[in-house]
């Protein structure tokens, strides 16, 4: 009798543990996505992380479960690659009270976009209703370089508005890029850096 009861308790505990693990893996947490950090096949380059395999036939089971749970439609591998940053180049989490400068190289792509999103991946609500930037809009300096100011208050030049009070993450999407699923090693130098300026 005691034995059966013990077995039942173990079975229920095992079931609960297993489902809790699944929940933890596919439910994006408040900090901006516990789930994604568990996916296999992540490519890290500086502050950026991408999942090039998620848009192929070889997407891993965790990626498939996560996308099914959230109703997401990742980019197919021929369409492009997307990268996500939750921290700056020093590794500190992006702080909505701080200004950042994004600069450096962007891997070759026909078009790219940079946008600010909430930790759950929704476009960040801003007073200007603008929360993204396309490669066509970018103003370059005379030497071909560029800087994008990420700030809650207006900046001259390339300004990506964020919302002072709301946590955000950055998404860089490379469309029609020469980087393929096989080019797994996106070197950190080829991706733009995100450097913290002053904080309020």
């Amino acid at each position: 009798m005691l034995h059966t009861l013990k077995m039942l308790v173990i079975a229920v505990a095992g079931l609960w543990l297993g489902l809790a693990g699944t929940y933890y893996a596919v439910e994006r947490g408040e900090d901006g996505g516990v789930g994604t950090s568990f996916l296999f096949g992540a490519v890290k380059a500086g502050p950026w992380t991408g999942w090039p395999k998620s848009g192929t036939r070889d997407a891993d089971p965790y990626a498939r479960a996560l996308y099914a749970r959230n109703g997401e439609t990742p980019l197919g591998i021929t369409e492009g690659l997307s990268f996500l940053a939750r921290a700056d180049s020093s590794g500190a989490p992006l702080n909505p009270a701080c200004d950042y400068v994004l600069s450096g190289a962007i891997p070759p792509a026909r078009f790219w976009t940079l946008s600010a999103a909430t930790p759950h991946g929704k476009p960040l609500p801003t007073s200007s209703n603008r929360n993204g930037f396309t490669s066509s809009e970018l103003l370059r300096s005379a030497d071909g370089g560029f800087e994008i100011q990420i700030s809650a208050s207006a900046r001259p030049g390339n300004w990506l508005q964020v919302n002072g009070g709301q946590p955000f993450l950055l998404m860089l999407r490379l469309y029609d890029t020469a980087l393929s699923a096989n080019a797994y090693s996106v070197v950190a130098q080829a991706m733009p850096s995100i450097v913290k300026e002053h904080c309020r």
């Binding site: 505990a13 095992g14 297993g18 489902l19 596919v26 479960a65």
Partner: peptide
């Protein structure tokens, strides 16, 4: 049991 349930549900 937890492992089997986790993998199965994923």
């Amino acid at each position: 049991i937890a492992g089997v349930v986790h993998i199965g549900s994923i």
